[in-house]
C-alpha cells in the first residue's frame, strides 16, 4: 500500500507533565512501532492545527512510549500546551542524524545544556547511562534562567546519585538563599570543570545565543571544532531535505543534522543567528 512520506501516523497522548510555567512533557504512544536514534527529531502535529519539529527527550531504549518536552513558543506549541491527555496527535519521522553515540566509545563526554535544550540532552544522557561502561566520565553542565525554569527537577536528585555522572548546575539569576549551586551563565560552569581535552568531546544544546557563547568558551578552553557537537535546531518542516526551510549554508539541517560538529558549520556566516 502507498505510504506518503509526508503522512503522519497517529499517536495517543497518554499524559502531560508540567515541568515549568512554560514547558511541558508530552508522553505519546504511537499506533505503530516507532524507533529513533537519540538526537533525531520528529514532526508532531495536532490534526487540523499545525505541525512542528521536536526532538524526543526519552531514551531510545524505551520503545513503547515517547516523551517530548516542549516549551510554549508559537501557535502549535501553544495548542499543545492546551491539551490535557487522551487526545490523538500525529507523528512522523524520525528524521536526520542524531548524536554519534558509537563514536564516543571510551571517551569522556561533557554535556552542556541550556533551558529547554535539556530535552534532547535528556534522551542523550539516558542513552549514555544505559551503556555507561562504554564511556569514561560523563559530565552534565546545565544552565537555566531561574531555579523555577529547571526542567526535570524530579530527575536531578536521582541523576546526582548515579556513579560516574557528574552534574553541575547554574541559574542566571536567583534571590539569595534559593539556590545552592552556581549563579551565572552556563559558560561559568565551563570555567570550573576540568577535563582531559585529549579524550573529551562536548555535546551542546540550548538557545542559539547559549550555543554561540558555549562554543566560544569551549574553543577558548581548548576543544577542537570537531569535538564540539551542536544541535542546530531550525524550522524544519518536511524533514526530508526538500522544503528548504532549515537550510544552513549548503546543509539541510533536517537531513544533514540536526547534530553537527562545529567543524562542519564554522565557515557558515552567522551559524547561530
Amino acid at each position: 500500500m502507498f505510504k506518503s512520506p509526508y503522512k503522519s501516523i497517529k499517536a495517543e497522548l497518554l499524559e502531560v507533565i508540567e515541568e515549568t510555567s512554560n514547558i511541558k512533557t508530552f508522553v505519546l504512544k504511537p499506533e505503530e512501532k516507532f524507533s529513533f536514534v537519540t538526537g533525531q527529531f520528529v514532526e508532531l502535529s495536532i490534526p487540523g492545527v499545525g505541525e512542528a519539529p521536536f526532538t524526543p527527550s526519552s531514551s531510545p531504549f524505551k520503545t513503547d512510549k515517547i516523551d517530548v518536552t516542549i516549551m510554549k513558543a508559537g501557535y502549535v506549541t501553544e495548542a499543545l500546551h492546551n491539551l490535557k491527555g487522551g487526545e490523538t496527535l500525529g507523528i512522523r519521522g524520525p528524521y536526520g542524524r542524531g548524536y554519534p553515540v558509537e563514536e564516543l566509545n571510551k571517551k569522556d563526554v561533557l554535556i552542556v545544556g541550556g533551558g529547554v535544550g535539556m530535552a534532547p540532552l535528556r534522551s542523550f544522557l539516558l542513552t549514555l547511562l544505559e551503556q555507561k561502561e562504554k564511556f569514561g566520565r560523563i559530565i552534565l553542565c546545565y544552565g537555566s534562567r531561574t531555579p523555577e525554569d529547571v526542567v526535570y527537577k524530579y530527575l536531578f536528585p536521582e541523576w546526582k546519585k548515579v556513579k560516574g555522572l557528574e552534574i553541575m548546575q547554574s541559574v542566571d539569576k536567583c534571590p539569595v538563599g534559593e539556590w545552592d549551586e552556581t549563579v551565572g551563565l552556563v559558560t561559568c560552569l565551563l570555567d570550573k570543570v576540568k577535563v582531559d581535552l585529549a579524550k573529551t568531546v562536548s555535546v551542546v544544546c540550548g538557545p542559539p545565543i547559549m550555543m554561540k557563547f558555549s562554543t566560544t568558551k569551549l574553543l577558548d578552553v581548548g576543544f577542537k571544532p570537531q569535538n564540539i557537537y551542536l544541535s542546530m535546531e531550525a524550522n524544519m518542516s518536511c524533514g526530508l531535505g526538500k522544503c528548504g526551510h532549515c537550510q544552513l549554508g549548503h546543509h539541510f539541517i533536517c537531513k544533514d543534522g540536526p547534530v553537527f560538529t562545529y567543524e562542519q558549520i564554522k565557515n557558515i556566516p552567522e551559524p547561530f543567528a
Partner: peptide
C-alpha cells in the same frame, strides 16, 4: 521551497 500545512480533513496535508 515549499511549506506544508494542515487541511480540514485532519489527516491530510497540502504543500
Amino acid at each position: 521551497c515549499f511549506i506544508l500545512s494542515e487541511t480540514k480533513d485532519i489527516w491530510s496535508r497540502i504543500r
